[in-house]
Design a binder for these strands. Structure first.
Lengths: 278, 278
DNA sequence: CTTCTTTGTTCCGATATTTGGAACTCGATT
DNA sequence: AATCGAGTTCCAAATATCGGAACAAAGAAG
């Protein structure tokens, strides 16, 4: 197959060249379509998806039918498509069965009690940070807006912290593929400045987000390394600029690093050897 | 192709009997494997999955590779498989983008404040109820254990309530396929008793769970019908038997019915015509 | 140390599935 | 009536999947 694009006859079709093009065949296309629907804002009509996915009509139609039959999508009366319930069922298991989150949770709570601010746990996946848990002020948290969300690495505290753990070649590979969207005036805009900051982070053991992702929002983060696992993660304490000064964040950095270290060690033990307990 | 079973020579091995045999081709198999891993308790080794999924070795291996490549599964150092982060990403969008849940939420809160007990929102999918939201006492709820979980219809308040809205033929189709597992001494054990109770529920407009799913747990539920949609759902107020008597539940039934009606109407308006708002 | 298992990975011809352009249906619009 | 747009169905050609069997690698037993 070609890439993701519809494409026609494939002239040279060298393929491989870039990233790891090739592919997951049918599954890949199905997932692309699924994602197109899930990530969209409202219900998507056939034509909408036709445009976003770039699949030919016939193919797309069959893919959608299959997805509906599997319960991953639901077709409404007006023929538009929405995410189906099966996604929830699968996800809830994936989340509650996540032992890493489980190990980290008490530490997140501890940090929250110390600081009174929101605490996040994120895992590195390619050039993104996926938030896996969150402990925040009073309000019932629910499957918080954040959980499951993926943010770019270069503009988040956890992201930069996690990057600091990567071996240089891996780091460079990721940075090379980055697009540096300027979310705020403080967002990194080039590989150079980012790499420079990462050097600092390696030295200090913690990273800051100086309103780089969202204006008026700051955080301190520390990386988590789990020995014996390929997992790279991080935690952060986040707060509004008017309430948490950079000095305040610096004061908390020790606690954040300590919590990160504790999670890393505990996880190495509990995730390493055997299965899960009771 | 055969059915889902791998089997060897398959004597009769009709398996599924019929239902809607045929299938979703490759996607179906991939999802079956994915589900096998996600629903399992710990990380699953290749051989474990080989057993549960019944796919031939070669096929299974390719399926797993593709699932990993898509980020739906992750392969650990010891070669075992775990749910991947992409599931979370997809699910969180599916959940937070669910407008029905959004409409219902204030009403759930209202019921919670009135009763002080746990309130659930569930949607009917085939012969199961999938919990989509939950409001409970103080404790931080998080993506509660329940959310996304699917329970059989015949032993839950919401399930029976939802069934009561179905047209008779549809109802009978579902009941015909039920397995009636006896979770407690009070669980329905036959189609007759279930159908009889559903007749009552149609009359009363609400259903009870008299410790039928879990011992010492009771609830009152009311069905939600959204006109103009195929959605069938329900809400319930649940509590421990020592604290909530059947009389208490009966006293609350009016409020539950009212909330259900309100949700149904509001949803019909907000889900019906246009897209989502801001 | 050798032999036997057990577990995971790779191969490859046969074949069922997917592919995608084009024709078709149905309803709304002009 | 004729045109347009959205969704669905068809079918020969292309290709990804299928799955048995051979192959490696790591343990366990002898």
């Amino acid at each position: 197959m070609g890439g993701n694009e519809a494409g026609g006859m494939s002239g040279e079709l060298t393929g491989i060249a870039d990233g790891e093009a090739a592919g997951t065949g049918t599954l890949g296309k199905a997932m692309a379509v699924l994602e197109a629907v899930v990530m969209a804002d409202g219900p998507q009509r056939f034509t909408d998806i036709l445009a976003t996915s770039g699949q030919p009509r016939g193919t797309l139609h069959r893919l959608l039918s299959h997805l509906v039959e599997e319960g991953l999508l639901v077709q409404r009366r007006d023929l538009s498509y929405e995410p189906g319930l099966r996604m929830l069922t699968l996800a809830s298991r994936s989340w509650s069965g996540n032992r890493f989150r489980d190990v980290a949770e008490p530490h997140l709570r501890g940090l929250h009690e110390l600081t009174g601010e929101t605490v996040h746990l994120g895992i590195l996946r390619e050039a993104e940070i996926v938030y896996v848990d969150k402990v925040e002020s009073r309000q019932t948290v629910r499957m918080s807006s954040q959980i499951g969300k993926a943010s770019p690495v270069y503009c988040t505290g956890i992201g930069k912290a996690a990057l600091s753990l990567l071996p240089q070649p891996e780091l460079e590979r990721l940075v090379a593929g980055m697009a540096f969207h300027a979310f705020t005036p403080h967002t990194h805009r080039s590989a150079e400045t980012l790499l420079a900051e990462i050097a600092d982070i390696r030295r200090d053991g913690h990273a800051f987000d100086r309103e780089e992702h969202e204006i008026e929002i700051r955080c301190v983060a520390a990386p988590i390394r789990v020995s014996g696992s390929d997992l790279t993660a991080g935690i952060s304490v986040t707060g509004p600029a008017y309430r948490v000064s950079m000095e305040q964040l610096t004061a908390w950095s020790g606690a954040v690093r300590a919590a990160a270290a504790a999670i890393g060690e505990e996880a190495a033990i509990r995730l390493g050897p055997g299965r899960g307990g009771p």
